[in-house]
Design a binder for these strands. Structure first.
Lengths: 185, 185
DNA sequence: TTAAAGTTTCAAAATTCTTTGAAAGAACTG
DNA sequence: CAGTTCTTTCAAAGAATTTTGAAACTTTAA
């Protein structure tokens, strides 16, 4: 019979892999989810070496992954008195993590996407207005509106934990100017 | 001076790349977003060859990408009378696309994740109940609760276009049994 | 200051993902 | 039916991402 410790580790890995998959489906590296899960289940702070051993991850990868997890605000670095090495613990507030990750993600691409769509729109506006260019322009502006509406909705969600996307339909049904002017209201 | 067509194409590519980036940040291949965008801006149905030419994508990649886009329900295949080849057009209803994609994503991993977390939980329940195993068990059950709450919220969002994640805090504050039993209520 | 312990960096290796293009397969046409 | 056109498949190539591990760096303690 294997010592209880082994079974506990096995359960831990099973859970870590499951959450790793979830995290991967949302566009992060699987190992980030696995590390966070090990810390979350452990409860107490663990050293990088300890985590690396349990998950079979090299010291280099651990260092990089832990830095990244901290950037996303889902893992904290802590020091224990008398101990030389650094320890890490998981953030346990799910909402905090979700909102931070959403906010960070948005921040990373929002501006560049809007800037490019605006540039595309400007290019089309500079063209002689045929039916074809007017149509394309309308479509590009719909994309831009969508991006703005989605960003606004996401911001609201982060602030209030609540979203209502009912107005999304407007992006299909109404002339684009009407939708966009409503944004501030 | 370049003919207007070139500028229109340039604008199209600019927008396609921008939306490609958005889509990539949400875990899909960039080319899927680029193809959808070209179709969306074009409005009318285009052939695979036509799209491939505009985006510089091989016929093989086009075929695979278009199949995938159809699986996600964001592009439709259409036939034109008298034309031998197939044409494609973009779904334009943003909400339809978002909800379908969320639903499909969830379907793909939900069961396997829950099954593994339940297995981990069962393993820990089979262990002699020390403080350590009880703690780990609590944490694994919190993860399972979180996954269930998130899935329920996502399902609700897809149905009603509305989410309220206020209860998320419960996953941190309350004993886990209380949170999970509340689920049905 | 030196040694020890621990962490970070980064080039190379390994792995995974994506694309290509040729061949096979369908579907239509005369 | 044979030829033509178009689509799909898939093995190999290419690209991108991730991981490793050794060297460089940092911090602490004596």
């Amino acid at each position: 019979m294997s010592p209880p410790n082994d079974i506990q580790r096995q359960a831990e890995l099973l859970a870590a892999d499951a959450i790793g998959d979830v995290i991967e489906h949302w566009g992060f590296r699987r190992v980030l989810g696995r590390i966070w899960t090990v810390l979350f289940i452990a409860g107490g702070a663990l050293s990088a070496a300890e985590i690396g051993e349990r998950l079979q991850v090299s010291s280099g990868a651990m260092s990089m992954s832990l830095t990244e997890l901290q950037r996303w605000g889902v893992v904290r670095r802590v020091w224990k008195p008398g101990e030389r090495k650094e320890f890490f613990e998981a953030e346990t507030d799910f909402w905090k993590m979700i909102s931070k990750v959403f906010a960070e993600r948005e921040r990373l691409i929002a501006d560049s996407v809007r800037e490019r769509l605006e540039r595309a729109s400007a290019l089309l506006e500079g063209l002689p207005p045929t039916d074809a260019t007017r149509f394309s322009l309308d479509r590009v502006e719909r994309l831009l509106s969508f991006v703005i509406v989605a960003q606004t909705a996401l911001d609201g969600f982060i602030k209030s934990r609540t979203v209502d996307f009912s107005r999304f339909g407007d992006l299909v049904r109404f002339p684009i100017r009407a939708v966009r002017s409503r944004r501030g209201a």
